[in-house]
Simulated assay, not measured.
Amino acid sequence: MNYQKMCEAADYMRPLLPETPKVGLILGSGLGDLGEKLEEPRRIIPYGEIPGFVCSTAPGHKGRFICGRLSGVPVLCMQGRLHCYEGHDITEVVLPVQVMRLLGVETLILTNAAGGVNLDFKVGDLMLLEDHINFMGRNPLIGKNAPEMGPRFCDMSYTYTPALRKLALEAAQRLGISLRRGVYLATTGPSFETPAEIRAFRTLGADAVGMSTVPEAIAASHCGMKVLAFSLITNMAAGILDQPLTEEEVIEIGQAKGQELQKLVLDILAHLPQA
């Protein structure tokens, strides 16, 4: 963990931001349109311009920060995330989260596109993450700890902040949105999982599977951020339906159902407790 690298990136971004962001948003596949709804004054900062950052190559990810306001709340939005399957080291994947923290972000909202493992789920469902299983075989906190960011050994009991989960359920009820709850299991990808792996993951207690989110949640928990996360079930996982899985399907469903998730996030932001 390179604390100096985090500080250099934060020092570059800080004078470019119109105000101190309080909430960070990471938008997954097909969900990047929420970044276009930020209210003025907006600032756009491509990842490639920030010292130490790598560029996003995943389909549907624009690879840039947008800073502005949503529901009156100052936010810093990642319009597209970084993934280990792109060839990035896991420390590069979580660097944006750590930089957000240095810039003043207190709450992180994560979204992703995921495959449904729970047989009761269907394509288009929204799932509130209650916990996760790290099946990536790596952890972003491995290596020298930066005590300025957090402790050597990070407790993960309440990674997904209970008070924020309660707020999300209340927002869903207000909006009449059906919100599943469950456990997200992360793999590295980029290949989709096999039917045998999905059966094993279901036995382990997973409700959805994807290739992101967990590294960012670990890094955010380590540095004391509140975390809220959602999965948009864009496909049923391998072996559930008799059809192949494609990235086009993921993006198409994300674009079709992403509006519902956007409404949910906007309502949550509007009801966040004021510091």
Rank of each mutant, 00 (worst) to 15 (best):
R64W: 08
Q274L: 13
P190S: 08
L167R: 12
D11V: 08
Q274R: 15
Q98Y: 13
G189N: 03
D131K: 12
G63V: 01
V97K: 04
P195D: 07
F192D: 06
Q255G: 15
G239Y: 05
G24H: 05
G210Q: 05
L82H: 00
N139K: 09
I45G: 07
L103H: 02
T194N: 09
D11S: 15
P140S: 09
E49A: 13
L95F: 07
V214S: 04
L241T: 14
T159L: 11
H271Q: 07
I253L: 13
V75K: 03
G176F: 05
Y160I: 07
G137S: 11
K122Q: 15
V117R: 07
E86D: 08
P51H: 03
G182E: 05
L179D: 01
V54T: 08
A220Y: 02
G239T: 07
A219R: 02
P244Q: 11
A9E: 01
L232E: 08
V93G: 00
S71D: 03
L164V: 06
A186P: 04
K37V: 08
M149L: 15
N118Y: 11
F230G: 04
E252R: 15
C154V: 15
M136R: 09
I198W: 05
L76V: 06
M136W: 09
L245K: 09
L241V: 14
A196C: 12
E216M: 05
G48N: 13
T107P: 03
Q262P: 00
G150Y: 06
T194W: 10
G35N: 06
H61N: 10
D207I: 08
N118H: 13
A270N: 10
F192E: 03
Y12T: 06
H222G: 06
